[in-house]
Amino acid sequence: MTTATLGSPSRASSVEARRRPRDWRKVLDWVAVHSLGLALGLMFALPILFVFLTAVMSDSQAFTKDLWPREWHWGNFLEVFDKAPLLKYLGNSLLYSLSATVGMLLSSIPAAYALAKMKWRGRNTVFLLVVGAMMLPPQVVAVPLYDTWSSLGLTGTLWPLIAPYFLFDAFSIFLLRQFILTIPQSYVDAARVDGCTEFQALVRIVVPMARPGIAATALFCFLYTWNDYFGPLLYTSEKPDQWTLSLALSSFKGMHHVQWNLAMAVTLLIMVPAVVLFVFAQRSFVKGITFTGVKG
């Protein structure tokens, strides 16, 4: 009797003792993961939050150390449109990014197809040249290109930036080739047996199957040109009516340095298109980049 009464609580407590550190570890783990997540998330998002808070401050408060706006001036986001022809710059940015993306698709899809699905002598050499060109910083070829465009009288416009995409874009060709390689050769062969020309095989078989890869490449191309600063700076810095948003932003700061809050508002507005695009295409972006790069 005594042994039984003594035995059962001690057994129970030993079970509890065995379980308790587990529970504690789980709680600690929960706290650690959440606080780490929150801290790191804040660390990365804080600068942008600060930009937002500054953007809605009054002119004078923006120059203080205050972190929180005393009054919320939402009108700042509209006021910037009076200060600078932002819509004009937006138009230029869209012209550059959209035409470059369309041009890239027209030129790079056939080239990628030829590198992935057609057999011809010298294919490897050409592919290596493409990889080499991918690593070529734009500053390196700036001299001969600038010289050529200026003899054509086209410096001061965005054409020197757009036109090359209709001829080739090494990074896009590389990404698209990697993606097209994952399409089974048998589909293409079957199309050939059925009497398709290479062009028909490309348009009817490969393009529909490579749609996610094409979407990811197009997104990359759009973001790259949207973000481009060096190109517009080199060719259009002396022609303000040709400026893109990224170029306009840095001069906006110079011209309106008194109105710090407005500069921050512009910074936020420029982010919007990229955010919208990314929200819609996030999945295909991540899938495309890892798929093409890793599975090649």
Partner: peptide
């Protein structure tokens, strides 16, 4: 978020 900020911005 930081990835979506235009680099010059």
């Amino acid at each position: 978020a930081p990835f979506l900020v235009v680099p010059v911005a």
